[in-house]
């Protein structure tokens, strides 16, 4: 019986090992991200901490002890600040190691320095492994739930997900009607698709406001795709319409989905919890 239980345990762990788990970060970290704070305060701290680690390591390697001490004191300050900002994480900080590191540098004791840097580094890795992705997903990425689009077909303002669904439906219907040779229906779906696709641009630029970023997702090739569909519908050139759709698919849909869809889906899952 014991053996079976042991085998079952191994099986469960082996199966579990194949999954990726993300831990939800402590709620208090939200205080350091917009809108509760102005700017990304916690991210700034992480950057400062990372810089002080590099400063310490580089200076120690070059035996520049004066700067090594300066950087290690910054490292200590930033490291301890993590615990002051997020109380739950205060317990997992290796405070004795960070003090020992500063002492090691003062004593120019390479072994002590190396040993304590390793301990500190491990604590960073552990925390990042558990929380880095989830914190980014929840607090760093903007939410698509806040995006509303005025539908040029119905005239109503609708949520982004609903809008995307309607637009995709138009595109699929256009393909179906083209393949089935139903011209009138294909024209109607095609016109609706173009209208919705063009209006989408105004919503994307809520965040991507510069001309350069606009050119990435609504650049020359995408505009060409729209013209091809429009002219294809007008002159009933099915191949041209299909090529236009392909252009848009490659240079717009895929690009944006690859950039946004994973974090948007993850964010949704966290929100549902």
């Amino acid at each position: 019986m014991g053996r079976i239980f042991f085998l079952l345990l191994i099986f469960v762990f082996a199966a579990y090992g194949g999954n990726i788990r993300l831990k939800e970060p402590p709620k208090e970290i939200g205080k350091f991200y917009p809108p509760k704070s102005e700017g990304y305060v916690f991210v700034d701290l992480m950057h400062a901490l990372s810089l002080s680690v590099t400063g310490t390591v580089v200076s120690v390697r070059e035996e520049d002890w004066k700067n090594a001490e300066k950087w290690s004191l910054k490292l200590k300050e930033n490291y301890l600040k993590v615990g002051r900002m997020v109380k739950k994480w205060d317990k997992i900080l290796r405070k004795e190691a960070v003090n020992e590191l500063v002492d090691g540098i003062k004593e120019k004791n390479l072994e002590k320095i190396q040993q304590n840097l390793k301990i500190i580094g491990k604590s960073c890795i552990q925390c990042h492994k558990n929380y880095k992705v989830s914190t980014r997903v929840i607090y760093r990425f903007p939410s698509f739930h806040a995006v509303y689009v005025e539908d040029p077909v119905s005239g109503f303002e609708i949520g982004f997900h609903e809008y995307m669904k309607k637009m995709t439906d138009d595109m699929k219907k256009l393909k179906v009607y083209l393949l089935d040779g139903k011209k009138r229906k294909a024209v109607k779906s095609g016109v609706r698709f173009i209208k919705r696709f063009e209006v989408l641009k105004q919503s994307c630029s809520d965040c991507h406001s510069s001309k350069d970023s606009e050119d990435i997702y609504f650049g020359r090739k995408v505009r060409k795709g729209v013209v091809m569909i429009r002219n294809g519908l007008k002159n009933w050139e099915i191949r041209k319409i299909m090529r236009g759709l392909k252009n848009i698919g490659i240079h717009n849909c895929t690009k944006c989905h690859n950039t946004h869809i994973i974090q948007a889906e993850l964010q949704e899952r966290f929100k549902k919890r």
Binding site: E150, P152, V153, G155, V191, K195, E198, V199, K201, Q202, S205, E214, F218
Partner: peptide
């Protein structure tokens, strides 16, 4: 009838 929406992007 047919409606077109013109945005500040185009």
């Amino acid at each position: 009838s047919e409606n077109y929406l013109i945005t500040s992007k185009d």
